[in-house]
Write a protein that binds this DNA or RNA. Structure first.
Lengths: 312, 312
DNA sequence: TAAAAATACTCCATAGGTATTTTAT
DNA sequence: ATAAAATACCTATGGAGTATTTTTA
């Protein structure tokens, strides 16, 4: 049984005439006759009573044809569904970001993307890189925003922007008068850091480790804060100093006057932020839309990388 | 889009593995891959995300596959309907008989056929030959029982039995003592006949006309009765004599003692009763079942013709 | 005789197979 | 290195065509 055969019997039932039905079906009359005979043989029933100059539908034929019409309608619905799903910017996109990016990008990104792709709601989740990577791989997330380096089999990444680190000290701290802070200077200070599991923590430690090698010094102490915002509060209250990504450091908050934000002296440490998705994820245009929207956000201090190539 | 392709995507969605889905579908893995790619191209959407060692269904794919399952279910229903309609002895048979046969055959035929083919209800109708022929030709009846000769384009007839005519006279009538009545004797009598339109009336008149040619006599008078039963009542009450088919004449009724039934002298006039159906009517076994059932009825005086061939 | 469906045959598109390559783990 | 899907290529079924015959009104 084929859908074509079903279309044929419906046509004959409508026209009650093989020749006319063939015309309407854009095939020759013998094609139609043969196909219908084949279907009748397969079903083991006679669908049409062929009288000279008149074709009548048998009672079984009537029921078969009604059912055939139902099949054809449901088939048309498949095309309809596919057509609706064709636009990659339609349908929810499950989007994840690491804790140290989400709070500073999402507030700008969400309204912008909602304007650009109103039929693509974002389902957003913040978590650690490792957790997001797992969700991405098993298909519970479609796209994640994280910090490089990141490499997983089957996952494509594409850099979006570079984000320099900033030194954040309490207002009145002596460094507040310096224009640029050398990385090595940090090693002698009490640094407030995120709890382990956050990649940014490791990046800051690496920065100091790199500086340490050159300066032969060590970080004396590092208190742990649960989020960048908590850490900034801690800095504002004079507990210590910290290093924050530019988007977090430059964010305007109530504590803005209680802290001083200073850039590093070259070579300024930074992190490279990238999007990551499954190589097989079938909505490249959705990814591109998110990427373009991120690039269009005015993120303080970052260097946009609009021409970065995707990397496996 | 083909039903086979739909079966394939449903299989892959079930197995989440092309190779296993191919096995379950009894085709090779490349066959499946190619078919699914073809469908995806046709629909313009990606149905499956192929990751190494895992196949995931895309959101559109999910909806397409659910719809595909619906299509396949409806398709299975067609086979179901056909299978149910396959038995020709299932489903109503629209059956007609002329006025002069129906009342004498149906009472025996209906219960017998109900026993033999309980799933084939008879929708019965009595009428004149001409009316039944019209209904048969335009498909409002499937099968009719009538008296030959009968010839219509596209209609097949098959004789079932020969039924001799009988002379019916009031009790006490002088012919009651005769064993056999020559047809020519009728011409001098007042004959009670059916109204015109009944083929039996014409057959009786023809019988007498034939006898008349030999005997040079004419029927003096013919009163019209609306049915054979009415006519028999009229004979019983002495209004006249009549000619009835054997099944009508020999039927046991309250008037049995008030009339005498006598056979004709050879050559005994008779009528040949036949079934008629459209040449294209697709239930020959249903026709055969009715025919066999009629032959199995104990109809008084008739000569069964179990080996008569169908005639166009 | 005319009109319609069935049949005969021919052809080619394509569904399906086997062998192989590509890809990702 | 292994497992899975994709690709390449070949074959054969059968869908569709034209021409013709059969059938019936």
């Amino acid at each position: 049984m084929t859908l074509t055969e079903l279309r044929y019997i419906v046509a004959v039932a409508r026209e009650r005439h093989f020749g006319r039905a063939a015309e309407k079906s854009f095939v020759s009359q013998p094609t139609l006759s043969v196909a219908i005979k084949k279907l009748e043989d397969e079903l083991g029933v006679t669908l049409f009573e062929r009288g000279a100059s008149e074709v009548a539908v048998t009672p079984v034929g009537q029921r078969v044809i009604e059912q055939a019409q139902r099949v054809l309608e449901e088939t048309a619905a498949i095309k309809q569904i596919a057509a609706e799903g064709k636009d990659e910017l339609v349908g929810p996109l499950r989007f994840g970001a690491i804790y140290t990016i989400g709070p500073y990008v999402m507030p700008q990104l969400i309204p912008l993307l909602h304007k650009r792709a109103p039929t693509m709601p974002l389902l957003i989740q913040e978590n650690f890189t490792a957790k997001l990577a797992g969700l991405l791989k098993n298909g519970e997330l479609d796209l994640i925003l994280l910090s490089l380096p990141f490499s997983e089999p089957g996952i494509v990444t594409q850099a979006v922007y570079d984000e320099p680190f900033r030194v954040v000290v309490p207002a009145g701290h002596p460094w507040g008068k310096k224009t640029r802070i050398p990385a090595a200077d940090l090693c002698a200070e009490t640094l407030l850091l995120l709890s382990s599991g956050n990649c940014f923590r490791d990046q800051v430690l690496q920065t100091c480790a790199g500086a340490k090698r050159r300066a032969n010094n060590g970080i004396q102490q590092s208190l742990e804060g649960s989020s960048l915002e908590t850490i900034r509060h801690m800095v504002a209250s004079g507990v210590g100093i910290t290093v924050l990504p530019a988007t977090a450091a430059d964010a305007k908050t109530a504590q803005t006057r209680l802290v001083a934000v200073r850039p590093f002296a070259p070579p300024a440490p930074s992190r490279r932020i990238a999007l990551a998705w499954r190589r097989s994820f079938p909505r490249p245009r959705a990814v591109a839309a998110v990427r373009d929207a991120i690039l269009a956000c005015s993120l303080p201090g970052v260097t946009l990388l609009p021409h970065a190539s995707p990397t496996v």
